[in-house]
Write a protein that binds this DNA or RNA. Sequence first.
RNA 1: GAUUCGUUAGCUCAGUCGGUAGAGCACAACACUUUUAAUGUUGGGGUCCUGGGUUCGAGCCCCAGACGGAUCACCA
Length: 566
Amino acid sequence: MSIQLSEQEIQRRQSLEKLRDLGIEPYPAALYPVDALSKDIKQNFEDQKKVCIAGRIMSFRIMGKASFAEIQDSEGRIQIYINRDEICPTEDKTLYNDVFKKLLDIGDFIGVKGYLFKTQVGEISVHVEEFTLLSKSLKPLPLPKTDSEGKVHDAFVDPELRYRQRYVDLVVNPQVKEVFIKRTKLFSAMRNFFNDAGYMEVETPILQSIAGGAAAKPFMTHHNALDIPLYMRIANELYLKRLICGGFDGVYEFSKNFRNEGMDRTHNPEFTAMEIYVAYKDYNWMMEFTEKLLEHCALAVNGTTEATFGEHKIDFKAPYKRVTMRQAILDFTGFDIKGKSEDELRKAALDMGIDVNDTMGVGKLIDEIFGEKCEGNYIQPTFIIDYPKEMSPLCKAHREDPSLTERFELMVCGKEIANAYSELNDPIDQRERFEEQVRLSEKGDDEAGGLIDQDFLRALEYGMPPTSGLGIGMDRLVMFLTNNPAIQEVLFFPQMRPEKKAVALSDEEKLVLGILKSKAPMELATLKDQSALSGKKWDAAIKGLTKAGVAKVVKEGESLRVELLG
RNA sequence: GAUUCGUUAGCUCAGUCGGUAGAGCACAACACUUUUAAUGUUGGGGUCCUGGGUUCGAGCCCCAGACGGAUCACCA
């Protein structure tokens, strides 16, 4: 219960008490009648105009009987000017000398009523007539400063701190806030585009008894009342198609998906995809729809179709180049995959120095070759089309070549950001493709799904109109539109390992832990003997350690064993 | 998972050969009525990530671990 407070935190708590002693409530309940924002004030300056603003104090410049401070609101900062004898017209100067100068801190929220003016140096400022403490801040904020040459000093840059304390990151790093504003703009732009086209936004289950629609490892959970395992969504495809069977012409969903796989700078365990399905369309229509969509979104987010990503300049202006997968592989390896057997493909891949094995079927082999030799070369938005049938179990066979499917992926900067099909709606073909996936799964390809969604097949048997579907990785698209190489930068709260709680151990606990560290795991009785503690103290120590999650007692038949935990 | 770098004051970072822990900002006190990274003077503030080891002595050397970053591998 003893929280270690820094000197500055103690001072702020003391200021809080002093304010209360002066009859000032540091966390008042009443609304504050804000009528202006910093940005508007600066853009539409009117001398002497009365304003009421609110925000965090971000800097102080105290000069005797007058002071300047900066208030940061949702749109930026504005300077305020406060004069002692105007705030305190009587003999009592407490409000200025004590409350303003001493008891307020950087980070506090205050409200200010006053009028606009320009200082001698021309800075638009609010001349304070009245100020109100709205909320006291008890922890000092990091304080990046920008000097006269525009250089930022002491920037709050440690990624670990920034991701764990995003609220602080957002307060002190305006460019971070901008990324998330753009993220929201992207979602609105896309939603508007779909709504204008007449399609309907829907919601489908996140807890599913079969996690289908993609090849990925799901998170597993359990429903107590039903006493059944449930999986968290890895894709929403199968549910959206059921809705097309049900008679909607176009449905879309922004879906949080969950995949229990590795984490790195481009993968977070939960991420956001957008999937849309439109009846009576095919993948050719969807390509045109997609390029128009992305052009629209880029414009809405950045005001231009051009975007910078690292060293690349990309342009989302439609139309985009279309390259068949066969042609792509031919272009970059000189190898023609058309009509090749599994063995021929495996040999070709091995000759190219690609690590492949016997569990890989034709589709996987081609995917490996493409991924290794071609994918990275497509910088400008490019549609890769006509994927082999084996790697697209939910996609309709190509109308001209049954060994291919009517599928495209959109590549940008060497990464996939969209995936689309002429959806497979032949229920018998679909069942066979699922069964083939199960066979692959049994063979050892752990990407292929192991369970067949019978209900989805039943829906297809009732009939699904010809449909084209599209999926977009929203996080990746935000990364491209905001020039961020890490997914953690475009998620408010990226997944992190839990912060290690500092465990304050008693002397007895330390003693037991010391013995345990040299010899764990060990017999509980032996450990107790070596600790030479009284029965009562021993009991408290081992219970304390297990409760703190440092050690664990495991029962094995008759014997009790103590293990050390991370 | 592998390699590698990092972890020191609220924040950003120095820290020499192993010898009492440093700077800037922030904080406290005083001065100062239109400042601009405001200024001047003075002062306070540390679990040097954790645990072992070597040593008369460890922020620094050695071992083990935690967390994070980067690169690679795996993976949509």
